[in-house]
Design a protein around this nucleic acid. Structure first.
Length: 271
DNA sequence: AACCTCCACAACCGCCTCCGG
DNA sequence: TCCGGAGGCGGTTGTGGAGGT
């Protein structure tokens, strides 16, 4: 058999249209199947990612609201890097989006805090990661072996992967890995107030009220409104008739860049 | 105007988990 | 019970655009 070459890289409008229509037909579960029958020379994974992060009708775009920002912070302190889980509490936001947001914004904040900490060197809590003497503020500490960093875990058993990767030479862009970000944030938060001690999901008292689900009105089986338990429950309810025509629920409310708006206009017409 | 830096975001990779045979 | 495949998840990278110098 001649294997068609798997396409990679940016998706075209035509591919999007195809994907949406096939998801409409077969639901958003059987990604490998969809990838095959659609004729998109993409992997199932790629199709799923495109759908979840970009084509899903309930996606909210644009800047994070202050409420969302706060929620991300608090949920991250509660759950660590469980982006998909955090995303479920932020209707319309994807794990990818939150991850990206966290990475850029928190890094920025951490840098600012770090600068502030440097300018007041009497602070005893800033010794650990600020000791790279002959570096500028923008060069970042590398991970010390055996040093504990609860921020890169989000839980007791998420350390291994990160550590083995970053412990080598992989330090991310500009030499600033996720690991370093967590450390910086840990540092900056410790300067501000005591930090919730990390791992357990119980006994964490937040001042933040439960997510009020602002202006969110997507269907009840939305990806984002479910917590794990809910999702399990729904999964158990899911039978073959589920989701057919989910994509037909397209609404015009998806905020996109101008070209993307056009794209969705086209997509709507595809049905 | 050209160049640089930063940011936002899309997408890929690799590992993990789950589920069906 | 075991195994393989599909899907899910977290980490990372690439790229384009905006803003600053």
């Amino acid at each position: 058999m001649v294997q068609q070459e798997i396409r990679k890289g940016p998706w075209t409008e035509q591919e999007d249209i195809k994907l949406v229509s096939f998801v409409g037909l077969f639901g958003d579960r059987r990604w490998d199947f969809i990838a095959k029958v659609s004729g998109l020379n993409r992997t199932g994974k790629s199709c799923r990612l495109r759908w979840v992060n970009y084509l899903h009708p309930g996606l909210k775009r644009g800047k994070m609201t202050p409420l969302e920002e706060r929620l991300v912070l608090e949920l991250h302190s509660k759950w660590g890097n469980r982006w998909s889980r955090i995303a479920r509490k932020l209707p319309g936001r994807t794990d990818n989006e939150i991850k990206n947001y966290w990475r850029t914004h928190m890094r920025k904040i951490a840098q600012e805090k770090k600068r502030a900490a440097i300018s007041s060197p009497t602070s005893s809590s800033c010794h650990s990661s600020l000791s790279s003497e002959n570096h500028t503020v923008d060069s970042y500490p590398t991970k010390k072996t055996g040093e504990e960093s609860f921020y890169d875990t989000g839980g007791p058993n998420m350390t291994s992967k990160t550590e083995t990767k970053i412990g080598e030479d992989q330090v991310g862009d500009q030499g600033y890995s996720m690991d370093d970000i967590w450390k910086d944030i840990a540092l900056s938060e410790s300067l501000m107030h005591p930090v919730y001690d990390g791992h357990s999901e119980v006994g964490c008292n937040f001042s933040c009220p439960p997510m009020p689900s602002p202006s969110w009105e997507y269907s009840s089986d939305s990806l984002w409104v479910m917590d794990e338990e809910e999702s399990k429950e729904i999964k158990s309810r899911q039978t073959s008739n589920r989701k057919v025509g989910l994509a037909l629920g397209y609404r015009g409310s998806v905020i996109t860049k101008s070209s993307q708006v056009n794209q969705f206009g086209i997509l709507c017409h595809a049905f």
